[in-house]
Structures are given as C-alpha cells and as structure tokens.
Simulated scan of single mutants.
Amino acid sequence: MNLALFDLDHTLLPIDSDFEWGQFLCRVGAVDTAAFERRNKDFFGQYEAGTLDAVEYLEFALGTLATIDPARLAALHQQFMAEVIEPNILPVARALLQKHLDAGDLVAIVTATNHFVTAPIAKAFGVEHLIAAMPEVVDGRITGRLGGTPTQGEGKIVHTKAWLEQMGKTLDHFDAVYFYSDSHNDLPLLSIVTHPVATNPNAALTTHATAQGWPLLHLFND
C-alpha cells in the first residue's frame, strides 16, 4: 500500500478556501466587512510570504466563527459550498485523487486551514481522512480558540505522524509516500516523503523543486 497526501488550497482547489470563506462572510454581511477584509488580506499576504503566525491567524478565523450562531453557521457553510467551492472542484483534481484511490492507496488531505471550513470540502472530494487545524468546541459551539497545535509547516509532519500512529502505522510502513503541494510553506513534509510533487507550485517552490529534481505538476493551466 502507498500513502498519498494532498494539500488543499491551490493544490486540489484553484482557490484558497480559507481566504474565500472570509470573503464570503463579508459578502453575506456576517462580519464587519472593512475590518475583517483588512485583517484577512494581511494574513493572506503573510502566508504567501511564509511569515504567518499560524496560531494568531487561526484564532482570528476561529474567533469569527465563534460570533455566529451554530445553526446559521451551518447554513452559511452550505451556501459557501454551493456558491464557491463546488464550482472549483474540477475534474482534473478529482481524477488525480481517484487515481490513488483506485490503486488502493491510503489518501488524506493535510491542510493548514481549519477543520470547520475544510471537512465538507474533503467530503465533496470523496476523501475520508482529513488532517486540519481543529477548533475548540464546547457544548456544540466553537469557542474561538485552537484545539491543539496548527497543521502548518512542521506541524503537518507532527499531525500526519500522529494520525498514522492511531492506525498503528508510520511513514516507513508504505512502499511510497506521495505529497502534493503548491507551497514552499510545505517544504518540511515535502522533504521527508519518497515522492514529493510540486503541484501548481508558487515561485519559491518551483525554484526549490527544480533544484531538487522533483516533478512539477500543473493541474489548472487551462
């Protein structure tokens, strides 16, 4: 059995689901648009530059969720899926996932975006296993705090190994371990798998992958 790990944003999706969720909340009037957009865009720029404080960002995002009634939050996410996500789940990404599923590989999405935003997206892709930043939930309501540690950078290694350990496995258990990602922020995990694939890579990852002789995969050129 092989293991196939996938980043989500700009890898399986041609958009950033986390950023787009924030923009969606602004469009529907669920947040103070001016204040939220300013902070959201600042954080997104830090992420692209590799300077993001993951805990600070996640607790900003989760704090926003905490201000919305859970029933309304669920309805908003259904609307977000229909209007934003589903049109961006493209056949080429489905086919890549399906290739690994058909081969009998263990498949997981490993994303820095929080579990609330990404769980329905993983389900829509037909992926059972999701490794994502977990919001703290008390009495069925998101508190605004992060439960555990971020799933970013080195954190993706920590959380992936912990997930495998729950199944009695390690990375060494697999004949091949693939990781598909677009971002240099994922270099820690890319660097320890047997088959790193720079997928729709940003400039920094393109440079690194080319120097290392890693394959470059462009899913969304057309």
Rank of each mutant, 00 (worst) to 15 (best):
M1C: 10
L3V: 07
A4I: 01
L5E: 02
L5R: 03
H10A: 14
H10N: 15
T11Y: 10
T11S: 06
L12V: 03
L13I: 07
I15K: 06
I15G: 06
D16F: 07
S17H: 06
E20I: 01
W21T: 03
F24A: 04
F24K: 08
L25Y: 07
D32A: 15
F36N: 15
R39G: 13
F43N: 12
Q46I: 09
Y47I: 14
E48Y: 05
A49C: 08
T51Y: 03
L52C: 13
A54G: 05
V55I: 14
L58S: 06
E59Q: 15
A61T: 07
A61F: 03
L65E: 11
T67W: 02
D69F: 02
P70V: 03
A71N: 11
A74D: 08
L76D: 01
Q78A: 13
Q79R: 15
M81N: 11
E83I: 09
E83G: 04
V84Q: 13
P87H: 10
N88I: 10
I89R: 11
P91E: 07
V92C: 11
A93P: 11
A95K: 12
A95N: 10
L96A: 07
L97T: 01
Q98D: 14
Q98N: 15
H100W: 01
L101A: 14
A103V: 03
A103P: 01
A103R: 06
G104Y: 06
D105S: 07
V110P: 06
A112I: 02
V117A: 08
P120S: 05
I121L: 08
A122M: 04
A122H: 00
F125H: 07
F125L: 12
V127Y: 00
E128H: 08
E128M: 04
H129Y: 07
I131L: 15
A133D: 08
A133F: 02
M134R: 14
M134P: 02
D139M: 14
I142W: 04
T143F: 10
G144R: 09
R145C: 09
R145F: 09
L146H: 03
G147D: 15
G147I: 05
T151I: 07
T151P: 02
G153I: 04
G153L: 12
K161V: 11
M167I: 02
G168S: 11
T170A: 13
T170Y: 09
L171N: 04
L171F: 08
D172Y: 07
D172Q: 13
F179V: 01
F179M: 03
Y180Q: 05
D182V: 11
D182T: 10
D186H: 08
L187P: 04
L187F: 09
L189E: 06
L190R: 01
S191F: 04
S191Q: 15
S191G: 14
I192T: 08
V193K: 00
T194K: 05
T194Y: 03
H195V: 11
A198I: 00
T199W: 00
L205I: 06
T207Y: 08
T210N: 12
G213P: 04
P215Y: 09
L217C: 08
H218E: 15
L219P: 01
N221W: 12
